[in-house]
Structures are given as C-alpha cells and as structure tokens.
C-alpha cells in the first residue's frame, strides 16, 4: 500500500472524557490505516469507543492525544472552523437517524453542504439533482422528509453525503432505524458506491451488516481488538 493511497492514518489516538472526578478513556491509543476505496466496518459492543472513533474520524471531535492524518493533512489539532471545512470537503455523513432538516425538501437537504462550500445556486441545484438521481430519488426531489419512507430518507442522506465528492463516506449505524428489506437495499447502495471507487467507513454493532464490508475492525475498551478482511473481500 503506497502512502498516497492512504486516506486515514491514525497513530496512538486517545480520547478522554472528564466526568466530575473521574476520567473516562473512550479511546486508548488506536492505530489504524485505511486506504482509498476500502470498505471498512468498525464494530464493537456499546462502550467500546466506536462512536467516539466515528466522531474523531468524522472531524466532529478532536482527540486528547495522538495523530490523525486525513488525506495527508493533520487534522487532530485543528480549530472548530477548520474542522467544519474539512467535514464539508472530505466527509459525507450518513446517520442512524438520517438527520435531515424536516422542513426542507430533499433537494434543499442535499444542497446544504454545497451552500457551505460556497457553490453558486444554479450549480448547486444541478449537482444536488444528480446526487439524488444517483441514489434513485430523481422523482422525489421536492418531497419533504416526512413525505418519504425510511429507506428513501436514508437515500436522501446518502445523496447529501455524496454531493460534495467526499474522500470518505462515513456511516453511523446506517440501517439502525430500517427494517431488514430496506437495510439490504441501503447496503446495496453502499456496495454500489464502493464499486464506483468510494471509500466507505461504517460504524455498526450488527454483525450481518458489518459482513457487507471488506474489512472489519473491532474495538474493545478503546483499543483495536481485531482487524481482519471479511468474507466479502
């Protein structure tokens, strides 16, 4: 694996939370490298540190200690606003609860990252439209989230995550709120995106969902417990 292919490089990543008198170590020195076009699932029981891992990788949180290089840039010491720009350009989030703006149309939801990237309105609409078509929602662009099914909402979220051509698609329990049929559909979308060259990182506690990934990293007590290539690879 050549260094240019590495998208994420994490060294000794530590994240501590101070609660009243005691200090809780959510991440205790994680080392991890993820290359371009990998499809990785991060697994672990609750309290294993996988949510913290996801927040740090997603640049929503900064580590207490350790290094985090994203696409060759050290992001572990950045300010809030710098991180916001990194999130805008490099990361596409897909959340368990979709996290769409309820009063905005699918189109407007997908446009949001482009608004913060400063893209011109006409350009924005065109790109958002294309992203929605890519996830099969070309005919639902002007629907509001409450007029869409759970699977469709998650597709809108995926379109929003993709619209800025991010380095990584970061999904946090993407099927947690969906029934099994719809979950399979969403997994099929992920597989498809991966085939098209997208790097996908997925945090989940469900083994059958993690089985869709090509590599499964398991965390336990804030450390990497196992890191293995899955049967899908």
């Amino acid at each position: 694996m050549s260094p240019t292919d590495t998208i994420i490089r994490v060294r000794g990543l530590t994240r501590e939370y101070r609660m009243a008198s005691e200090t809780i170590q959510a991440l205790a020195g994680v080392d991890l490298e993820i290359a371009k076009n990998e499809y990785v699932a991060i697994m672990g029981p609750s309290g294993s540190g996988k949510s913290t891992m996801m927040n740090v990788i997603g640049c929503l949180d900064t580590p207490t200690a350790g290094e985090y290089w994203l696409n060759g840039v050290e992001v572990s010491r950045m300010t809030d606003d710098e991180l916001a720009q990194v999130r805008n350009r490099e990361i596409g989030f897909v959340f368990q609860t979709f996290n769409l703006l309820p009063r905005a149309s699918a189109m407007h939801n997908v446009e949001l990252p482009l608004i913060y990237a400063g893209t011109r309105a006409a350009d924005r609409r065109e790109r958002a439209g294309r992203a929605l078509e890519r996830v099969g929602l070309g005919d639902r662009m002007h629907h509001k989230p409450n007029e869409l099914s759970g699977g469709q909402r998650q597709r809108v979220a995926i379109a929003r995550a993709l619209v800025n051509d991010p380095s990584i698609l970061l999904a946090d329990e993407p099927t947690g709120n969906l029934d099994s049929t719809t979950s399979e559909e969403i997994m099929a979308v992920f597989a498809d995106l991966h085939r098209q060259g997208q790097t996908v990182i997925m945090v989940t506690h469900e083994a059958d969902i993690a089985a869709h990934a090509h590599r499964v990293v398991t965390l336990r007590d804030g450390c990497v417990f196992s890191d293995m290539l899955g049967q899908a690879a």
């Binding site: 809030d80 606003d81 916001a84 720009q85 999130r87 996290n99 990252p113 990237a117």
Partner: peptide
C-alpha cells in the same frame, strides 16, 4: 439545536 448540529456536521462554520 438539532438543526444547528446537522448544519455544523455538514460544514457550517461558526460564522455561518
């Protein structure tokens, strides 16, 4: 608050 969080996760800076 949730909307603000969503916007921030999508790249909104403080000044936005």
């Amino acid at each position: 608050t949730r909307e603000i969080g969503i916007r921030k996760s999508l790249g909104a800076r403080r000044r936005d």
